[in-house]
Write a protein that binds this DNA or RNA. Structure first.
Lengths: 155, 155
DNA sequence: TCTTATTTAGGAATTTATCTTAATGAAAGC
DNA sequence: GCTTTCATTAAGATAAATTCCTAAATAAGA
């Protein structure tokens, strides 16, 4: 519930174009799923998207929502908020540190920086509530996954 | 598999003390669960902790692991890596932005900063692989939850 | 020693997410 | 517009992660 409608329609058109170029059909369902995610800043999960899209397409199936969200994230039309894990992961390192997480295998590694200018808590974040912690989240593909992908490409 | 053993034993003693002060018993199982998490930087999930602790306490039940991890995270002895959500959440905002996430209700909100000096990717992170994205992850308690907690305190 | 928190077994239940099959339907290229 | 091919649907099965149940046994800490 933000972003001006014009901008949304623009993005949707671009999305449909990109779908076609990628050999994926810009179906009504797929488009509405995309719309549901970009029309909000609430970072909805699959169930929330399902509820939203159902208002426009009552016949849509939950399966279709899952299938398309996964596809859209893979194609880079959407991002996954946080780290893309399947289970809660615990961190016993209580010192100030940052995370690198692999978007393929879910590997998470700690790192520390000098934080030259202090890496202070942004005022913008304080507006949402009481800040407890702050760290950098770096996402990417780890060396091991990179290697596997290269091996696959050769085939 | 890092952290020097001496430091770990020290933390475990402090943990046991803190447990008692908090009115929780420093049981053998609880202690070993704590040890399993702080003895590694692999950010294990409950299943991984279970496998690890089982080597020292073969009779331990998975339920106990879940119960204690939850408790330890609540008491602040451990952190949860990433945002503490229960389902995958999607983000249609493809522009550079940051996240505030509430550790109580899971709310996630976007914010942007001026990023004066660019908030450049730390070299330390590059060592792990190919970096795709970078953002700040601010965790805290959102205003709504803060309000609820205060209301509860009054009772 | 005594009280109380905790663990255990063994099982059931929930939630999230994915997959199966077969029939229908709709998109995009031609 | 026709046709090919991809996508959706129903209906249900499945898998994995997580939580909860009860009752009995046990260990921690005062």
């Amino acid at each position: 519930m933000k972003a001006d409608p014009t901008h949304i329609e623009e993005r949707i058109r671009a999305f449909q174009e990109a779908c076609r170029r990628a050999g994926a059909k810009a179906t009504h369902q797929r488009t509405e799923i995309f719309r549901a995610v970009i029309a909000t800043d609430s970072h909805p999960d699959a169930q929330a998207v399902y509820r939203q899209v159902k208002e426009r397409i009552p016949s849509i199936s939950l399966d279709t929502v899952y299938r398309n969200l996964k596809l859209l994230a893979e194609k880079g039309f959407l991002q996954i908020a946080g780290t893309s894990h399947d289970s809660l992961r615990f961190d016993g390192n209580m010192a100030h540190h940052h995370h690198f997480s692999c978007t393929r295998c879910g590997m998470i590694r700690d790192f520390v920086t000098d934080d030259p200018q202090g890496l202070k808590i942004p005022e913008e974040a304080c507006a949402f509530g009481e800040v407890q912690s702050l760290h950098l989240e770096v996402k990417g593909i780890c060396a091991a996954c990179r290697k596997k992908l290269k091996a696959k490409d050769k085939k």
